[in-house]
């Protein structure tokens, strides 16, 4: 799967979980940029992403993401 596609799908997931149709994601987006994205919703997003792609992240991976781009990379790596 292309990283651009992954990003698009993540955007859909974010909009759904955070209940905000106006969310736009770029590889540089961080939690501070999205109002509803905090330490608690973060885990809901992670679970939703794992379910959507049928993958499982390690704790270390999850805690090492600095922005959406890192998340996309992790998803891509798992899908190969």
């Amino acid at each position: 799967m292309e990283k651009v596609e992954i990003l698009k799908q993540l955007e859909t997931i974010f909009r759904d979980v955070l209940d905000n149709e106006g969310i736009v994601l770029t590889p540089q987006t961080v939690a501070d940029d999205v109002e509803e994205w905090d330490s608690l919703t973060h885990i809901q997003l992670v679970v939703a992403v794992e379910k959507a792609f049928g993958i499982r992240f390690s704790s270390k991976e999850i805690l090492s993401w600095a922005n959406v781009g890192d998340l996309v990379d992790s998803v891509a790596a798992k899908l190969c």
Partner: peptide
């Protein structure tokens, strides 16, 4: 939050 809650939350997800 960053060093206790987040790791726990990830583990209990």
């Amino acid at each position: 939050t960053d060093y206790v809650f987040m790791p726990l939350n990830v583990r209990f997800r």
